[in-house]
Design a protein around this nucleic acid. Structure first.
Lengths: 346, 346
DNA sequence: AGTGCCTCGGTAAACGATTTCTTGGTTCAC
DNA sequence: GTGAACCAAGAAATCGTTTACCGAGGCACT
């Protein structure tokens, strides 16, 4: 807060004094609320301009019961996915005069609930990205956060939520590889407790049932570059010709590892990512991936939030938005080579 | 703000009522301020716990004259550099119990000043990244923002600022290429009004004087992937063997363009970036670049901010932190090929 | 002229905390 | 036994706004 310049920040009282009216009148003209005599209004405006008066937002917030701010809690700002959501949210909210407050839980699950509560108290609503939080805790927490929008999570009481259909998306990726002729696939999994990883595994289970002739291995992994890179040996050893990476970061790490080992993508091995982060189209080769319309998610999150904030009465029925990833086929996947590289693991 | 649950959010008055004391006493025990009878204190704590009372931050802010929030204004959240600064800042500030409020000016120069002022009124201080704002306007604005930290800008009145030495950094890149044997260089410039681009140009001017035997062309460009990609033809046509890209994004776009055109990096042409964004080491080939310790900048920005916030008295002398980029030599640069590809442009 | 309505703007009560001031009750020393 | 010193907790002021309420005028109509 500001109380530096000269002695005190100028407040509504100073303007009132200078214009020879009461604070109430100043407030009225500043907000264009009630009808004020044009002459007086002009005098007030002049005084305000001369003093460079700007209303104190904290005072307004207290009186109005709103802060024109929403909070977002993210598990990790280093992740391009959350960066993109934040960006989309920030821009969309900004267009409506709202600002966004960040709370980065740094992947510490226990912090998520606390941060969310704190953010909620400071803001008019919160957008919650909490992939690791337990279902029970989420259910308990949600009501107290009320103007709330969830990302990739849902609650029983139908909190508005935006969900990427990872289950279907990963199946699409697998099918793409099968269509190219691959018979031996491997999924480089994400963090164990990640909700979206579980969805992917569920999708692959369905895929397995529907494609009994296709081998599908599950490899432990992580969610970032380094874990993809570190999985290189594992991937080579497993003998699969088509790799489904947990996300684009992992895929890129793997791409780089394979390149170092002298394997050619997609000639020797096909690699597909997930998310379609901005960098995906610029890898060499450009990465085939399941594109998630991430910017849209950010701005839609704001829309859903705004609906809740602005309709103070009944909610316009809770909404659950579903995003089905779209296959973005680039150059990192191709038909498997006819030479029997897949035998080398035996 | 919260006023949803049941009827009203519970406030200090409810706790006071339940504990049979006055608000003042509740406030005292919540803040551990004055000495309160242990019995009463316990009663209050119990009441607070039963009601799940959490103090309203807006009320506190008004009374205390601080918000425990700092603002950051960035020109574009899509830029990895600002994402990284934001992240470092957010984590460092979070560790001290401060939150950060975002204002994205979306590259609209005229918005920067307004956003900064607004952010300042809501927060205890602001970190300003305003690469395009005019010097005069910055000088005028700075005092009113007072607890202020500048990124890559400075003012006459010595506002604390963190500066990357682009001037020296770009010279280091150029020297690196010369050391490899390159005689024909080209700089793929950034946005015209970017302050950091001007610094790079100044650095290259010095380089020119010191290396009269080296040809150095200036090519118009931009600051993102696409502009790098779009410059591919220009780069090929200019005949240079060593390319200095404005930043890593541009370099990566160029890398991808060159790859599409069938040119090999670094065999046919060397490309160097600037910044060392996280993705730089995972391009193919891994990108040689001038590494800017960007995470450090974010956290140091917080340190400088904290110094100003916590020492309300005299400033601990204004500081100007300088970061000299460190060459990160990877695989995208090498000695020029002996075959005279550089003639093809003649 | 008196009544009623309408307009304008001042007064004061929120909003939810912190903090200074004050008061009533002890205790202690003289 | 009285005054000083002291302590804990309540009363009230403060922070900077907004806004419900009300009173004072002005005007028109009966």
């Amino acid at each position: 807060m500001a109380r530096n310049n000269a002695n005190k920040r100028i407040g509504i009282a100073d303007v009132a004094l200078k214009a020879g009216v009461s604070h109430a009148t100043v407030s009225r003209v500043m907000n264009g609320n009630a009808a004020v005599d044009p002459g007086i209004a002009e005098r007030v405006r002049l005084a305000a301009a001369e003093l460079k008066y700007q209303p104190n937002p904290v005072g307004r917030s207290l009186a109005l019961g709103k802060t024109d701010t929403i909070g977002i809690v993210v598990p990790d700002l280093a992740n391009p996915t959350f960066q993109a959501i934040l960006r989309g949210l920030s821009i969309a909210a900004g267009a409506d005069g709202y600002r966004v407050l960040i709370a980065d839980s740094s992947e510490v699950t226990s912090e998520e609930a606390i941060l969310a509560g704190e953010a909620r108290r400071r803001c008019d609503g919160v957008v919650l990205c909490a992939p690791r939080m337990g279902d029970a805790q989420l259910e308990e927490l949600a009501p107290s956060l009320h103007p709330l929008v969830l990302i990739n999570r849902t609650t029983a009481d139908n909190t508005p939520s935006l969900n990427v259909d990872y289950e279907q998306g990963i199946q699409d990726v697998a099918q793409h590889l099968v269509a190219l002729g691959h018979k031996r696939l491997a999924f480089l999994a994400g963090p164990e407790h990640s909700a979206s990883n579980r969805q992917r595994l569920a999708g692959l289970e369905v895929f397995r049932e529907q494609n009994p002739g296709i081998e599908l291995q599950l490899l432990p992994g992580g969610s970032n570059f380094d874990s993809g890179h570190d999985s290189t040996e594992l991937v080579i050893a497993c003998g699969a010709t088509g790799i489904l990476a947990f996300n684009d970061l992992v895929a890129m790490g793997l791409l780089s590892g394979l390149h170092e080992r002298g394997l050619r993508v997609p000639d020797d091995i096909s690699v597909a990512g997930f998310d379609d982060i901005p960098f995906a189209r610029y890898t060499t080769p450009p990465l085939t991936t399941a594109a998630v319309p991430i910017n849209e998610i950010g701005s839609l999150a704001w829309r859903r939030m705004r609906e809740q904030i602005q309709q103070p009465g009944e909610a316009p029925e809770p909404v659950r938005d579903e995003f089905r990833p779209r296959m973005e086929i680039r150059k990192s996947t191709a038909a498997p080579s006819t030479s029997p590289r897949d035998q080398c693991s035996a």
